[in-house]
Amino acid sequence: MPNRFSDWVTKIITVFKKEIKSEFRTRYAFNSLVMFAVVTLTVLSLAVGQFALTDSVKSALLWVVLFFSSMSGLAQVFIKEEERKTASILKLSALPYHIFLGKFFFNLILLFILEIITVPLFLILFEVRVQTWDLFLAVLFLGSVGLASTTTIIAAIVSKTDLKGTLLTILSFPLLLPVLGISIQGTKVAVTGAPFYSGFAEVKFLFSYIVVMLTASLLLFETVWME
């Protein structure tokens, strides 16, 4: 068993490394993610920055920025395989599980890098004073994992269609609504300064969503990928 497990991990890491390499060649997904986030942040800040916004509005705005930025870039992992006609070679060289998890981790890292840039910017521009940092980071982390897991499987579906990019937002929004709603709620709790345990229900909820979504994605990915 340990042998098989380490085999799994190395295969997943191989796919992940391949994603990073091909991303570094063009930086397409990364650039569109970051630029989209910066543009939205600027627009929001210019439009409503001078008003005194409530904490719930601020936390909603943060997740709106993150949601739409991830919609602009995270579908690339699968779309590029179809566009460059490399999908068949990938199909031959790795198992669906490895591909899905490798691409999921790649999307996750992309989202984390995006957050390292945008979240501090957001906190500065909107003068958010986070009171409970551990809860804030936990919600941010789990919310991003939820975002990345759902968008990865939906991106796999979308890359097989004739419309590609535009469909991703339409298809993922109903599935991501629970994640967004609870993340906004959790961020609000963290910003208003309640202790960690008062946001514990949100953390548990996000965790269970991620477990369910990832399991379902792993089960369904093969049918989508081999289509």
Binding site: L175, M213, S217, L220, E227
Partner: peptide, 13 residues
Amino acid sequence: TLSAVYSILSFIA
């Protein structure tokens, strides 16, 4: 196939 997968995913959510 794809719409079946989407139908199942949305049902889970």
